[in-house]
Amino acid sequence: MKTRQRILHYTGEVVLILFLVIFLIPLIQTFFTALKPDIEIYKTPVHIFPQHFSNVHYLHVFTRLSKDFISFFKNSVVITTVSVFLILGLGSLAAFSLARIDFVGKGFIIFFISLILSIPLIITVIPIFMMETAMGIKNSNLGLILPYTAVYLPIPLFIIYNNFLKVPTELEESAYMDGANRLQIFTKIFLPLIQGGLIAAAIITFLNCWGEFLFALILNTKRSATTLPIGIMMINDEEQSWALGPMSAVMILSIILPMSLYMIFQKNFVKGLMEGSVKG
């Protein structure tokens, strides 16, 4: 009986690990394609592992494609970073108020924020497109930062809100006794207590903005103004040079940042996903 169980256990391990490797094949294949010389990429049968390593595709990205790639990358970094800071700032202020202060209209705001999570965003893009055309901020970083800050506010807000709910009231009351005002209680007591939640909210927001597709596709159509996801699509078939090798290299370079954030803050990320979904 015991040996049978052990065999079952190890079979389970092997099957699962095998599955996980197959699951990651798209990523693994892209990673190694970026390191293969062209003769190995355009050859059948296709091998996953390179026989010879080559840095020619990465060099290609940083020489011939550097103008496009660097501008996509820069736009992505600026737009994502500014949006994350704006969202965390506005979101934690609002979350504090929703979690800790009684005021009229609170229910409406919470209801409205949950509603945003479910509507198809295209119904907001149409007027935003018209608005930004009139204001002349299409094809600028600001033109994406503003809508991102609104669209990606709800989930981090709920994460922070759920964290604030857990802070014991005694802390707040004793600070009151000492004569602190609400803003001081917020910055000095509440924010430092929920660092984990803030990190989770920041990572989830970062990933959302970094991979955003719809708004960038419609609002930033100029090559110099667009972000990585759209930029790569724009150029993919325009130039022969963006063939499989350089394309793979660009993709690996584009996911390094989100991937390393995930690796460093894996626990926060998973916890944040839960906290953001409970309410939403």
């Binding site: 990523l27 990933l207 991979g211 996801p229 584009s254 996911i255 991937m259 995930y262 894996q266």
Partner: peptide, 15 residues
């Protein structure tokens, strides 16, 4: 299992 969530959806499509 969480790795695909970290990759922008359009890039997953290209892969």
């Amino acid at each position: 299992l969480f790795v695909p969530m970290v990759i922008p959806i359009s890039m997953s499509c290209y892969m």
